[in-house]
């Protein structure tokens, strides 16, 4: 394990604050369960979780929150945002919650969570269809969506198509509506996806769950397995679903599995 104790560069150049959007849904009765903080991937905002998952989690007794990374959703515009600034946003929101939170990252939000875990001892972490970056991410994206990906490789916006994000079960109107809401990540953060710094070791040794779909058109199964192996586990799979598991027609299954896992995991059981 490598603990980085001396962080002169970080202290000398603190991340500039940015106004953040945080949406939340809390259970009617406090049941001692840990709060969940959902971190959307690039292009998505807190809205993606407000659609179904926040309320569903609250209904099962978990206080549930989602933030929009700077430059996304209702947060302050931030075209020059870096991965570090995104991780900073996550840690800021997590530390403001009344109790130690579970971080849930989707897509490239999982990479952001990976970095945040080195700066905040989360109670647990869940990586949903994680995009952890590297050239293989680009390769997969190029193979599946050359027209949307190529401009990104030259600094343009990454365009994901509705068919990459959702299964055919999702009505077209919904798919279009969601796709229209997509924005884009900061140029520098997008570049950093190609060659991301390895996150430092997580502090506080949180248990980590990986889940995704073998039919995800953004994250191939091999990437899911690789991500899970990093944390000595195997991914939970939801065949037939698209990349955006929280918006797709069968959104209930993955969130229920996630909450079941938290209910069983000793670190996240009420009173732990």
């Amino acid at each position: 394990m490598t603990d980085r104790v001396m962080r002169a560069r970080e202290w000398a150049r603190p991340v500039r604050p940015a106004r953040r959007e945080v949406l939340g849904s809390v259970p009617q009765l406090e049941q001692g369960r840990p709060p969940l903080l959902f971190v959307p991937g690039f292009g998505h905002g807190a809205w993606a979780f407000a659609e179904h998952w926040l309320e569903h989690a609250a209904g099962r007794g978990f206080p549930a929150y989602a933030l929009s990374l700077r430059g996304h959703g209702g947060s302050e515009p931030a075209p020059e945002a870096t991965l570090r600034a995104y991780a900073h946003d996550v840690v800021q929101v997590a530390a403001e919650l009344p109790r130690r939170a579970v971080l849930v990252g989707h897509g490239a939000g999982a990479l952001v969570v990976g970095h945040a875990l080195a700066r905040y001892p989360a109670r647990a972490a869940v990586l949903v269809a994680p995009v952890l970056g590297g050239w293989s991410t680009l390769g997969a994206a190029l193979r599946r969506n050359p027209a949307g990906t190529l401009p990104a490789a030259f600094g343009g916006g990454l365009r994901l198509t509705p068919r990459q994000l959702f299964s055919r079960e999702l009505p077209d109107a919904d798919a279009r509506r969601y796709a229209d809401r997509l924005g884009r990540a900061g140029r520098r953060a997008q570049w950093a996806l190609l060659n991301p710094d390895q996150p430092e070791a997580a502090v506080g040794r949180p248990p980590v769950l990986v889940l995704g779909s073998p039919d995800d058109q953004v994250v191939p199964l091999s990437a899911l397995n690789r991500a899970a192996r990093r944390y000595d586990s195997a991914p939970l799979l939801f065949p037939g679903m698209g990349h955006d598991l929280m918006l797709d027609a069968r959104w209930r299954e993955p969130i229920d599995a996630l909450l079941d896992w938290l209910d069983k995991e000793p670190a996240t059981r009420p009173g732990a």
Partner: peptide
């Protein structure tokens, strides 16, 4: 100043 004062795993609020 704040970055030097806060605990390394529990930042003080940006505000």
């Amino acid at each position: 100043s704040r970055p030097f004062t806060q605990f390394p795993d529990f930042p003080m609020p940006d505000s």
